[in-house]
Design a protein around this nucleic acid. Structure first.
Length: 109
DNA sequence: CTCTTGACTGAGG
DNA sequence: GCCTCAGCCAAGA
């Protein structure tokens, strides 16, 4: 990892790209891993440029496991469909068994 | 430099 | 358990 050579956004992309298949994480978890636990909002904001960056933004949700960022995707249920395609159950924008599929970078990365 | 915005989070009612 | 308020921080205008 090249720390200062990468911007905050880039760091977020790096971590997001490392999210394993069938797993999800929260903005706060990523922010905390980057040492910016108070910048969880920035993490989501950074995901705006996730398109074309190999960043599985659909695997990143808020701390409640809620697909808050689904509105930033193409349609309305695209994000949910992607998660379900990975074996993650999603009901009403809410990830089921969130704790089970949760992936903490500081622990597993 | 100042102000606004935002895919968040935690605390309080 | 749900709703509201406030704090936080970085980037863009």
């Amino acid at each position: 990892m090249q720390p200062e050579t990468l911007n905050f956004f880039d760091k977020v992309y790096q971590v997001a790209k490392c999210i394993p298949y069938g797993r999800v994480t929260s903005y706060g978890a990523i922010a905390s891993y980057l040492g910016a636990s108070r910048s969880a909002r920035m993490v989501g904001y950074a995901m705006n440029g996730s398109v074309g960056k190999e960043v599985p933004a659909h695997r990143v949700v808020n701390r409640k496991g809620l697909l808050t960022g689904k509105h930033h995707f193409d349609g309305t249920n695209l994000m949910q469909q992607l998660l379900e395609s990975e074996g993650i159950k999603v009901v009403d924008n809410q990830i089921q068994d969130f704790e089970t599929v949760f992936w903490e970078p500081s622990k597993e990365l």
